[in-house]
């Protein structure tokens, strides 16, 4: 185990970096896109509702692996060249957005009720009421489930290994196939994953308690 740490610290470091980068990019973009989809679902517009709902249902109900492989194997063949990291991150982003949208939609709907009417009656437009009254409250409610989703997304980023995305899991496979020391290679990256995910999920539990 010490051997692997000595010889492959570079690979592990690089893998750690790519995993963090994929997770970070996915977090930022799927938060924005997720809010957008959630708004499509709640605004008073039937077609928008259908589109938003459709997006969530489709992407929540197919495996991440299929989405990622689609972007790695099929999109480059017919549309545009994407490398493994990009394809993997786009897949992860589209998939995670659906879950974030679902969380935020239920957050908005749990606030809405009388608050929307109240705000509208003071002369606010729908957009203003949403922006200043509903969304800020909804975001507070959804922080713990969003945090859990973020932990899931970090774990899910290991899907990049399937498309040569250079992440931790990919590096572990590579190290294991050079050293033949499967268990220890995976053990080490297991600890590296835990270093990212454990504090985060403990912090989320703490927040959950505090906000409750």
């Amino acid at each position: 185990m010490i051997n692997i740490l000595n010889h492959f610290s570079n690979e592990l470091f690089v893998g750690f970096g790519w995993t963090l980068l994929a997770s970070f990019l996915t977090l930022v973009f799927s938060l924005i896109f997720g809010i957008f989809i959630a708004l499509l679902e709640v605004i008073p517009h039937k077609v928008a509702n259908k589109i938003g709902r459709g997006y969530v249902e489709i992407f929540r109900n197919i495996p991440l692996l299929i989405i990622v492989m689609f972007f790695y194997l099929i999109v480059p063949k017919y549309i545009i060249q994407l490398n493994g990291f990009t394809a993997g991150t786009i897949g992860l982003f589209l998939y995670t957005s659906a879950f974030i949208a679902e969380i935020i939609r239920s957050g908005i709907q749990s606030v809405s009720g009388g608050q929307m009417e109240g705000a509208r009656s003071t002369g606010m437009t729908y957009k203003q009421a949403m922006q200043y009254i509903i969304l800020p409250q909804a975001m507070k409610i959804v922080i713990p489930p969003l945090g859990n989703q973020f932990v899931n997304l970090i774990k899910d980023s290991s899907i990049l290994a399937f498309v040569a995305g250079f992440d931790l899991m990919y590096q572990a496979n590579a190290i294991a196939s050079v050293t033949f020391d499967t268990m220890n290679s995976y053990f080490i990256i297991g600890i590296l994953y835990l270093i990212i995910t454990m504090p985060l999920s403990y912090y989320m539990r703490y927040l959950e308690k505090k906000l409750a």
Partner: peptide
């Protein structure tokens, strides 16, 4: 092979 055909 799929990757080769997709010019990866």
């Amino acid at each position: 092979v799929s990757a080769l055909k997709s010019h990866q």
